[in-house]
Design a protein around this nucleic acid. Structure first.
Lengths: 337, 337
DNA sequence: TTGTTTTATCGAAACGTTTTAATATATTAT
DNA sequence: ATAATATATTAAAACGTTTCGATAAAACAA
C-alpha cells in the first residue's frame, strides 16, 4: 500500500502539499496539482482512514439506531430509510454503523458500543426510540436527529413525514370519488405518525361536511404491535360486525391495509366497488398485492438522505437551534380505490 | 476526553504498561494492574479507535454486502442474518459496514466505497451476489465468506444452510402424516438453496416409494423475482388448473408459501385438511398468518454469528484451505400441516 | 556462589495523516 | 520604488495508540 509519502516523493513535492490537494485546501499551483494528481493515480493511492481520523479528531462514523422490534418485524420501512442514508454517505467519507436497541433499554447496560466508545460523530434515531436513550445523547451532547418520531413538548432536530397532509389528501380523494362513509383502521397511538394520520383523516371528513356524520373509526389496541395485518383484520371484523355501511377504509399504514384487504376478501366484499381501501407508506408489497393498493407514498430514500444531511450540518455547527424538516408525501391511486 | 497518557500519569506508570493491560499482553504485576484498572475506571478512559487502528494496521471494520433486490424486497431474511452478525460483533471491537450492490454490477464503477478505500479487514457476502464481485475480492485477496450461497465448481469459505435435509425432513413428515400427492412450488433455480430444497423434496419422495409416482412440481420462472407470494399464487393456479389431486405443497420458502396459502383460500380449499402447506425459513409472518405456517426454521441469528466467527478466523490466518460450515435446521409443525 | 530464565517496566520509534507557522516568491496597490 | 497582499511550498509538531528492544529485578537452577 502506498502512503502519502510515496506520492510526495513521486511528485517531487512535500507531504504537506499532497495533503493540501487531497483536501482541496489552500493554494497550490496548477502545475504541481497535476503532478500530484497523476502520482496519486499511478500509485492508486488512497488516504488511510484511521490516520486521517486520528489527525482530524473525527471518527467518520455515524450511528443509526432503531428499535429491534421495528427492524425485525415485517416493516421494511426503516431499512429503506437506512438505505437512503447509506446512499447519501457514498459521496462522503462517512460510514454508517447500524445497531438495534431493545424495548426495555437501560443506558447503563444496553448502550450501543459505538456510543460507549465514542466511535461516532453523530447519531440518527429511526422511529420510536427509548426516551432515556435520547436523554443520554442530550447529556453527552452527542449530535443526533430523530427520524419519523417526536416527543410532544420537546423540540429536537428531526425529519418528519407530512402525515397530516398525506392522510388528508387521501381521504379527501376518497370522498371526491364518491365514497360516503369512510372508516379508519389503525393500531395504538404510541407513534405520533399514526396520531397525525388520524388527525388528517378526521380533518378531511370535517372539511367535506362529514365531520359530525356517523363516520366510522376503529382502533385496535395491541401491546406490542402497533400496526400489523392482524390489526387490519380485526378492524374490519369489528366494523362489519356492527352492520355498518362503510364504503371506504383509510388505514394507518400499508401493513395494516394488507390485513384489511385480506379480511374484506374473506368476507367476499368487492374492492374497491363496495369498499375502497387506502394505505400509507407505499411499501413494496402494496404494488404487488391484488388488487394493488392505493396509498400515500413516503419517499423513504429521501427521508434517509435528508436525515444524513441534517445530521452532517449539526455535526458541523452543533449549537444552532433545533429544527424540524418535513418530507412531503404523495397520494398514489391504484386499484383498491 | 482522557488519553492513555492521563491514565499512565494517574497510575504512576508508563504508557507502555497501560497499553499492556488494555490489550492483556505481556507481564504486569498484580499491584500495578490494579492501579491501572482503577485509573481507567476513574477517568472513564476509552482507547481511541482510530489511533488504535493506525498503530495495529487493521481497520476494525468488516463489510456486509447484499444484493439490493434481496435487501429491499419483502425478504427480511438477510437483515436478520445481519443482525446476528451485529450481535456477535458486540463482544469484539469490530464494526459492520452494511451496503448493497446492484444487479448489474461493475467493479470499476459500483465498488463499495469500503472496498475501494480498503476500509475493511474482510467481507461477508449474503445470498446471491455478483460473481465479478467475488472475483474482485479474490484478486485483491480480501478475506471473505459467502453466506447462503455457493458457486458450483468453486469452493469458498462459506456458511450454508442445510437445505437438503430440511426439505427432506419436511416432506418426509408430510408423507408420514398421510399425504399422498405432494407438490413443489418454487421460483427459478438461480439460487442454489432453492435447488437444494428441491433435491431434498424429491429425495423424500423417492425414499417413501413415491419417486416414480406422478408427484407434482411447478416452477414459475420470473426474471427478477425468484421467490415471492406471486410465485406461490401462480404456482397454485397452475397446479389446480390441471385438475390434479394434490394434498400437500412444499414451498421453496415462506414468502412463496404465503402466496400459496392465499390462493388456496381464494379457491376455498381447506388448509391443512384438503391441502397441507409447508414453507422454509421461518420468517416472522409465518407464525402470524392464518392458519399459522408449518415451516423449516433457519436460525438466522446463528448463521450471522457463525459467519462473523469464520470471517474472523480467516482474517487471523488467511491461508488455510477454504471451508464450508453447515447450519442445521429444524422442522416446525404448525397449523398448516 | 554464579548463571539462566522468568517477570516487570519503560523509552522511543512507528503508524499515516493534518495543520500551524514560517518562508519565499509573485502580484498588486500606492 | 516600496509596501502590502496574494500565492505557493514546506518543515515540524501533533493526533493517541502499539510494539520493539533495552534494562532490571526476581526467581530458579547449577
Amino acid at each position: 500500500m502506498s502512503t502519502i509519502k510515496d506520492v510526495a516523493k513521486k511528485a517531487g513535492v512535500s507531504i504537506s502539499t499532497v495533503s493540501l490537494v487531497i483536501n482541496k485546501k489552500g493554494y497550490v499551483a496548477q502545475k504541481t496539482l497535476e503532478k500530484i494528481t497523476n502520482a496519486i493515480k499511478e500509485l492508486n493511492y488512497k488516504p488511510l482512514h484511521s490516520a486521517r481520523k486520528l489527525a482530524t479528531k473525527k471518527t467518520g462514523n455515524i450511528g443509526y439506531i432503531v428499535w429491534d422490534v421495528h427492524f425485525s418485524e415485517v416493516e421494511i420501512f426503516y431499512s429503506q430509510i437506512f438505505l437512503g442514508m447509506e446512499y447519501a454517505t457514498r459521496e462522503t467519507d462517512n460510514y454508517i454503523l447500524l445497531t438495534t436497541v431493545k424495548e426495555h433499554f437501560d443506558p447503563k447496560v444496553d448502550l450501543p458500543r459505538f456510543l460507549k466508545y465514542k466511535d461516532v460523530d453523530g447519531v440518527v434515531l429511526a422511529g420510536r426510540v427509548p426516551h432515556n436513550l435520547i436523554d443520554y445523547l442530550e447529556n453527552q451532547s452527542v449530535p443526533f436527529v430523530l427520524v419519523d418520531y417526536g416527543i410532544s413538548g420537546k423540540i429536537y432536530n428531526s425529519i418528519v413525514i407530512d402525515n397530516y397532509n398525506g392522510a388528508f389528501q387521501a381521504v379527501d380523494q376518497l370522498i371526491k370519488s364518491g365514497k360516503k362513509n369512510i372508516g379508519f383502521v389503525g393500531g395504538s397511538f404510541y407513534h405520533p405518525s399514526v396520531k397525525e394520520r388520524y388527525r388528517g383523516y378526521k380533518e378531511a371528513l370535517e372539511v367535506n361536511g362529514k365531520g359530525n356524520n356517523k363516520y366510522i373509526e376503529r382502533n385496535s389496541y395491541f401491546k406490542k404491535e402497533e400496526t400489523s395485518p392482524e390489526v387490519g383484520q380485526i378492524g374490519v371484523k369489528k366494523i362489519f360486525s356492527n352492520g355498518n355501511t362503510v364504503d371506504g377504509i383509510f388505514c394507518c399504514n400499508d401493513t395494516t391495509a394488507l390485513g384489511v384487504m385480506h379480511e374484506l376478501k374473506n368476507q367476499n366484499i368487492k374492492i374497491p366497488d363496495e369498499v375502497a381501501v387506502v394505505g400509507f407508506d407505499d411499501i413494496t408489497s402494496s404494488s404487488f398485492c391484488t388488487p394493488t393498493l392505493s396509498t400515500v407514498r413516503v419517499p423513504k430514500f429521501d427521508v434517509g438522505k435528508e436525515a444524513f444531511k441534517l445530521l452532517s450540518e449539526i455535526i458541523e455547527s452543533p449549537n444552532v437551534t433545533p429544527q424540524t424538516r418535513t418530507i412531503s408525501v404523495e397520494y398514489i391511486k391504484r386499484q383498491s380505490s
